Each structure stands twice: as structure tokens, then as C-alpha cells.
Simulated assay, not measured.
Amino acid sequence: MRRSNKDRTEATRQTLMDHARELFVERGYNETATPDIVAAAGVTRGALYHHFADKRDLFLAVIDREAERVAAEIAGAAGEAVSARDALVRGIATYFSAMAVPGRSRLLLLDGPAVMGIEGGRATDCDHAEASLRDGLEAYLRETGSDLAGLDPLTRVLSAAFDRAVLAIAAGESRETYEQAIIRLIDGLVTRPSR
């Protein structure tokens, strides 16, 4: 069965992104050159520039795809939850598993923010994993009758804690310890009725 032009175009785009990802992980953004990407992908420079304005544009597409994959994994795990807290706990474990994919923490937490800048990195996070976290926190706080004031800054602070935990785990620290620490933080958000 013959593929359509649209299918071939998308296949070329994905091939470029796949090979670029490998090189960005192996060498880093600054040490990866576009001639190396097109050679690895087996396409011409013209094909690269047909799909992406430049190396930065290709890198941003790789970052966005990685962030989408993390968010999709979290959503899949949270969808099986029996309560908002269970969804958060499942989301925590899934986030750590998703970020353990080789190269992902480097791309999303180190090189991504360095290339995109703080605001660009925040925007990507806000659209994906942080959005999942915010939704989960809101559901949990509503479910427990807790105060929703300051939900957005609280989400950003917790998101930063998740990212620091991922980097610590990647450096060899105990994943279980960090999962438990994040759960304790989240459980501490619940407003207890005064006596």
C-alpha cells in the first residue's frame, strides 16, 4: 500500500525529530550540528528546513513531544484512580517513571530551559506536566474541602520540587524517598477542621 504525501511528510518530520533527539541527548544542544542531524536521519538539509526553521525550532519540537509524552503517561495513570489523592499518587509515580526514560531529564530539565529561557521552559511545563499537576491538586483540594487560594503558585512550587527530585534520582538518590516526600507535601496541603 502506497503512503500519501502527507504520510511521507510526517514520517520525515518524525525521523528528523527521532535522530535529533538522540544527538541532543548524546551531545547536548550546543554540540549538535544540523549537518549531523540530517546525516543521521538520512535526509537532505532541504528536508530539515522544510519542516523546521532552524536547529532551535527542531529542538523545541523535540522538547514539546517529550513533554506531551510525559503528560499523556500521567493522564493514563490518573485515569485509573479511585480518588483525587490516588490520582495524585499515581501521577507522582508515573512522572518519575516517565522522566526516567534515558535522556528525558536532560532534555526537559537541563537543556530545554537553557535553550528556551526561563519563560519558554515554564510555558512548555505549564502546557503539559504542570497542567496535570494543577488539575490533580485542584481536584484533591476540592475533594477534601480544602482552601484553593494560591493554587497556581502552589502548583509551580510543587512542580519545581518534582523537577529537583527527578534530578536527584537521576544522580542516584532513592526514588522511593522522593516519592514519599512529595506525597507528604501534598497530604500537608489538606486543610484540617479546627477543633
Rank of each mutant, 00 (worst) to 15 (best):
A131C: 11
P35S: 06
A181M: 10
F24N: 00
E26K: 04
A71V: 05
R56N: 03
L16R: 07
Q180F: 05
E80Q: 14
E66A: 14
Q14C: 02
A100N: 06
S194M: 09
L133S: 07
S132Y: 04
G42L: 05
A72P: 00
D86K: 13
Y49N: 03
F24D: 01
S132T: 03
L148Q: 10
G46S: 10
R122Q: 15
L185S: 14
D64L: 10
A61F: 04
L158C: 11
M17T: 01
I92W: 08
T9N: 09
A11Q: 07
A41H: 01
T191F: 05
A87E: 11
R142V: 14
E80D: 13
D36W: 09
E173P: 09
E138D: 12
G103K: 02
A131M: 06
R85A: 15
A78C: 06
L185P: 02
E68W: 02
I169M: 12
L141G: 03
A41N: 02
R164T: 14
A53N: 08
V89L: 12
G121I: 03
M17I: 14
E143Y: 13
G150Q: 11
R3H: 09
I63K: 01
Y49T: 12
D135M: 14
L110K: 05
M1G: 13
F59A: 11
L148Y: 13
A87N: 10
V190G: 11
E66R: 07
Q180Y: 07
D111G: 04
G117F: 03
L167W: 02
R195Y: 10
E31T: 09
A114T: 10
A72M: 06
L137K: 06
E22L: 15
S194K: 10
E68K: 02
T15W: 04
A114W: 02
I118D: 14
H50T: 05
T144Y: 11
A129T: 05
D86F: 14
R56H: 10
G145L: 06
S174P: 06
V190I: 14
R164G: 15
P193K: 08
G28C: 04
M17Q: 08
Y29I: 02
R184T: 15
A100G: 07
I63S: 03
F24Q: 00
G46V: 01
R90P: 05
H51C: 00
I74H: 07
F96H: 07
L108N: 08
A20G: 15
F96I: 04
A114C: 02
T191M: 14
Y140E: 11
D152E: 15
L158E: 08
R134A: 15
D54S: 13
Y140Q: 11
E176Q: 12
A131H: 11
V190E: 13
R192H: 13
G121A: 09
S4V: 06
D163Y: 05
A131W: 04
L23D: 11
A87W: 03
I63P: 00
R8E: 00
L107W: 04
A93S: 15
E73D: 09
R2S: 11
G46I: 00
D127C: 15
G79V: 06
S132E: 13
L48Q: 00
V25N: 01
P193L: 05
A11F: 03
G103I: 02
L148D: 10
G46A: 12
T155I: 10
H51E: 00
M17C: 10
A170E: 13
V70Q: 04
V70A: 06
R106A: 08
I74C: 12
R106I: 07
Y49E: 01
L60W: 03
R69M: 00
L151D: 14
V43D: 08
T144K: 15
R69D: 02
E173F: 10
